[in-house]
């Protein structure tokens, strides 16, 4: 597959990386193939915001996101992409309740993806804490591993949950499934699996994207990839 074709499939238009003109951002959102699925109309009934766990605690309203996009005010939409929409927890309760069958959560997903593809400054800032999740995804295909579930990373934990972060090795041993008796990955991942993952990331342009967004992370990842490839290929 040519490099250009791969790029098109991922909707990563290399010419537009860094393009942050408000009108073109809105155009990218409305041009997404999912846009017609997530927005049909809006009655301003507020059932999405009423259902939204983030709306309860933050200055965030899925109704306002939908209304702002529908208003066509590109600058207001761009302002929202900087911080506002990142309070969404992607639980999709809004989509479950909307009388129009809209999916405000789905709209937020499109807006976030556009923000990522266009390399908006907010993305660097807001997604920094996800670096370690990304590293796990890139290296073994898991998002969360038992040893990542520690109180330090979850300041809003209730009083009882920290218990689950102690004596991990023993607790995992209690699961009667051999592949789950590990703490550094969600399940045992063979080196061959990681090897195939790296090939997929490379072919689909994910590594190129990481290189643009987080050069430091990319450096760690490429060392890791190189080591694993050496090991696998030399053992053949």
């Amino acid at each position: 597959m040519s490099e250009e074709a791969v790029m098109t499939h991922l909707r990563l238009d290399p010419d537009n990386v860094g393009e942050q003109d408000a009108e073109s951002l809105l155009e990218a959102i409305k041009g997404d193939v999912r846009y017609e699925e997530v927005i049909h109309g809006c009655l301003n009934c507020g059932v999405c915001s009423g259902s939204c766990p983030s709306h309860r605690f933050f200055d965030y309203s899925p109704r306002i996101v939908v209304q702002t996009v529908l208003s066509g005010d590109a600058q207001a939409v761009k302002d929202m992409m900087d911080e506002y929409i990142w309070a969404c927890a992607q639980c999709y309760t809004c989509a479950m309740r909307c009388p129009f069958h809209n999916s405000p959560g789905g709209l937020v997903m499109i807006m976030r993806e556009v923000a990522v593809w266009r390399g908006m400054e907010a993305v660097h800032r807001l997604l920094k804490p996800y670096g370690r999740v990304l590293l796990k995804v890139l290296s073994i295909g898991n998002q969360l591993t038992p040893d990542m579930i520690q109180p330090d990373f979850f300041p809003d934990w209730g009083p009882k949950i920290p218990w689950s972060s102690t004596d991990l090795a023993i607790k995992r041993k209690a699961i009667p499934v051999y592949t789950l008796q590990v703490t550094t990955s969600a399940w045992r991942v063979s080196p061959q699996t990681s090897y195939e993952l790296y090939t997929i990331y490379e072919e689909t342009g994910v590594f190129r994207l990481i290189e643009q967004i987080d050069p430091n992370l990319y450096e760690v990842v490429s060392d890791m990839v190189e080591d694993l490839r050496d090991t696998i290929e030399s053992s053949r």
Binding site: C45, G46, V47, G50, S51, H55, R63, R97, P99
Partner: peptide
């Protein structure tokens, strides 16, 4: 003005959850 998102119950009374839009 706001469509009710859900009804729960607390201390024996129904509780309406929603957004006053």
């Amino acid at each position: 003005k706001g469509r009710i998102a859900e009804v729960t119950e607390q201390h024996g009374r129904p509780v309406l959850k929603g957004e006053d839009t």
